[in-house]
Simulated assay, not measured.
Amino acid sequence: MSALWSPPYTSPNDCLMALQNQGFAVLDAAGVRAWLGVPAEALQALEPAWDDLPPDEYLKDGGRYRRRRHGCYRIDGEAVQPVPHRAHYQPVEYNALHGGMRRWFAPLTPALTAQPAWPRLLLGVARLASALRGPQPWFVEAHSFRIDTTGGIGRPTPEGAHRDGVDVVAVFLLRRHAIKGGESRVFEADGPRGQRFTLTEPWSALLLDDARMIHETTPIQPLREGELGWRDTLVLTVRGGGFLGDDEGV
């Protein structure tokens, strides 16, 4: 569980081609900065918000290892519009463990969303979705996660390998602290190919064409006995046509 598989990094100039050809792309931190046009210090200014995440009260496995916040946006062209706080919803076909219910997570804080880099992140994934699917209004959900080793193990994806039911998924790694595990795995939804690798560099990212790829992250464990470890990520999902659940009245 301690092995670290090197990510298959892509140049930011080849990011769209990688999504089109293989369904995913991985950017190192320099690639993320170049893609977004954001300096390192602006991204680092977002990080203190991860020390202010309340527990996820919806974990069906009874775990206390996940802390998170959630926010939603509508992006049309270059206009980023926050929408009123709403529940996160996934059908059971996309999340067999937690699907089918409205989950009301704590909202994102102004300490995060007022940072200059924040709208640049949202616009970056929306522009990528437009390049992949064609320009249109996009409905973006933002999830700030901390998975820790409370109880000895933390599960970044307790639902297992899954799709999110959106167009594009972006997973940004902010920090790994005193952990082993946390390997990213991506698989073709309709084919035999897959890859495994471990994101370790702060502000590296995995980008996915969610219609084509299934993904998961393996559990984490403490690197040293008696020391709490954690893994911080930002997950942005981009969907055309509305938020998941809108057409079901949720």
Score class of each variant (00 low, 15 high):
residue 4 L to T: 10
residue 12 P to S: 06
residue 14 D to A: 12
residue 16 L to K: 03
residue 17 M to P: 03
residue 26 V to H: 02
residue 26 V to R: 04
residue 26 V to G: 01
residue 28 D to M: 11
residue 28 D to S: 07
residue 31 G to P: 05
residue 31 G to N: 03
residue 40 A to L: 15
residue 41 E to P: 07
residue 41 E to K: 07
residue 41 E to F: 07
residue 42 A to I: 12
residue 42 A to P: 01
residue 42 A to Y: 07
residue 46 L to D: 01
residue 48 P to W: 08
residue 49 A to S: 13
residue 57 E to R: 11
residue 59 L to D: 11
residue 62 G to D: 13
residue 65 Y to M: 02
residue 66 R to L: 12
residue 75 I to S: 08
residue 78 E to L: 15
residue 80 V to N: 03
residue 83 V to H: 08
residue 85 H to V: 00
residue 85 H to F: 05
residue 86 R to C: 06
residue 88 H to S: 01
residue 90 Q to S: 14
residue 96 A to W: 08
residue 99 G to T: 13
residue 101 M to L: 13
residue 102 R to D: 09
residue 108 L to W: 07
residue 108 L to I: 07
residue 112 L to W: 06
residue 114 A to Q: 13
residue 116 P to W: 09
residue 117 A to S: 10
residue 120 R to E: 05
residue 124 G to T: 02
residue 131 A to R: 13
residue 131 A to D: 11
residue 135 P to T: 06
residue 137 P to G: 03
residue 139 F to M: 05
residue 140 V to P: 03
residue 141 E to R: 05
residue 141 E to S: 10
residue 144 S to N: 09
residue 145 F to W: 05
residue 147 I to Y: 02
residue 149 T to I: 06
residue 154 G to H: 01
residue 163 R to V: 07
residue 163 R to A: 13
residue 165 G to R: 05
residue 168 V to E: 01
residue 169 V to S: 01
residue 170 A to D: 04
residue 172 F to C: 01
residue 172 F to T: 00
residue 172 F to P: 00
residue 180 K to I: 15
residue 191 G to P: 10
residue 201 E to Y: 08
residue 202 P to A: 15
residue 206 L to N: 01
residue 206 L to A: 13
residue 207 L to T: 03
residue 215 H to Q: 14
residue 216 E to T: 14
residue 220 I to T: 13
residue 221 Q to W: 09
residue 222 P to Y: 06
residue 222 P to C: 11
residue 223 L to P: 04
residue 229 G to V: 02
residue 229 G to F: 03
residue 236 L to I: 07
residue 238 V to Q: 08
residue 239 R to G: 07
residue 247 D to C: 04
residue 248 E to T: 06
